[in-house]
C-alpha cells in the first residue's frame, strides 16, 4: 500500500459557459520517504494535484488516499486537522505573514501543532540563526523561502509539499533550497513532493511524475537519484 495514492482524480472548474478540466482522472502512487518531483509545463495540473494532496483543494471525482485515509472524503474540519498536523507546504512565493518576524512565522505555524520541533532550532537548522527576528520584508528571497521551509518543517509533518520552491530564486539560492529539501527528505525520511518545470531537478528525485494536460503522462522511477550538488543546469 503506497503511502500516497491518487486514484482517478479529476478536478473540473465549471464556469457556466466553459468547463476547465485541471485534472483528468490522474492516478499515481507515492511511497513513504520518497522524494518525488512532479514535472510539467504551465497549466498541466501540477499545482492542482499538490493542492488536493495538501488538503487545500477538493477533487471533483476520484480518491486520494494518504496513509490509508481517504482525504478526499474529509470534511472541512478533518481537512483542517490534516493540514495542521500532516502537511507542510512550501509555496513558490513563500506566503509568509508579513507582520510577523521569521521566528514568529514559524511559531505561528507550530502553535497549533501537537507534535512540533522548536522553531528556533528549525530556524537554526535552516541557517537563519541570525535572521530570526527580521520581518520578511527585511529578508532576501532565499531567506524568505528558508523561513517558509522552516515553518513547514517545524510542524513535523508527514510530508512536505513544495510548489516550485525555487521558482522565484536565482540559481545558487535555488540550489541551496533544494539542498535543504533533499537533506530533509533523506535525513528525516520525510515524503517530499516537489513541483518544478525544471527537468534537471528531477534527477534528484526518487520518482518523477510527468504531468501533461491534467494527468500524469509518465512516471519514472530513479533507482539512483543524484545529489543536488551534482546537478548542474
Amino acid at each position: 500500500m503506497a503511502y500516497i495514492e491518487f486514484e482517478k482524480v479529476s478536478k473540473v472548474y465549471d464556469m457556466g459557459e466553459v468547463k476547465i478540466t485541471a485534472l483528468d482522472e490522474t492516478s499515481f502512487k507515492i511511497d513513504e520517504g520518497e522524494l518525488v518531483v512532479i514535472l510539467g509545463p504551465s497549466g498541466a495540473g501540477k499545482t492542482t494535484c499538490l493542492n488536493i494532496l495538501g488538503g487545500m483543494d477538493s477533487a471533483t471525482s476520484g480518491k486520494v488516499i494518504v496513509n490509508g485515509k481517504e482525504i478526499t472524503s474529509y470534511n472541512e474540519k478533518e481537512l483542517i486537522k490534516y493540514r495542521r498536523n500532516d502537511i507542510g507546504f512550501v509555496f513558490q512565493f513563500y506566503n509568509l505573514i508579513q507582520n510577523l518576524t521569521a521566528l514568529e512565522n514559524v511559531e505561528l505555524s507550530v502553535q497549533i501543532c501537537d507534535n512540533y520541533i522548536e522553531p528556533v532550532k528549525v530556524l537554526k537548522d535552516v541557517g537563519l540563526e541570525n535572521r530570526m527576528n527580521n520581518f520578511p520584508s527585511q529578508l532576501s528571497g532565499g531567506e524568505q523561502q528558508r523561513v517558509a521551509i522552516a515553518r513547514s518543517l517545524a510542524k513535523n509533518p508527514r510530508m512536505l509539499l513544495c510548489d516550485e520552491p525555487t521558482g522565484a530564486l536565482d540559481y545558487k539560492t535555488g540550489k541551496q533550497i533544494l539542498k535543504l529539501l533533499e537533506k530533509t527528505a533523506r535525513e528525516k525520511k520525510m515524503t517530499v513532493v516537489i513541483i518544478t518545470h525544471n527537468s534537471a531537478i528531477s534527477q534528484m528525485a526518487d520518482k518523477v511524475i510527468k504531468f501533461k494536460n491534467g494527468k500524469q503522462e509518465e512516471i519514472i522511477i530513479n533507482e539512483n537519484p543524484k545529489s543536488i550538488d551534482e546537478i548542474e543546469w
Partner: peptide, 10 residues
C-alpha cells in the same frame, strides 16, 4: 494571509 493560515491548518 488567510489562505496561508488555512494552509497551515488553522
Amino acid at each position: 494571509e488567510i489562505g496561508t493560515l488555512k494552509s497551515l491548518g488553522f
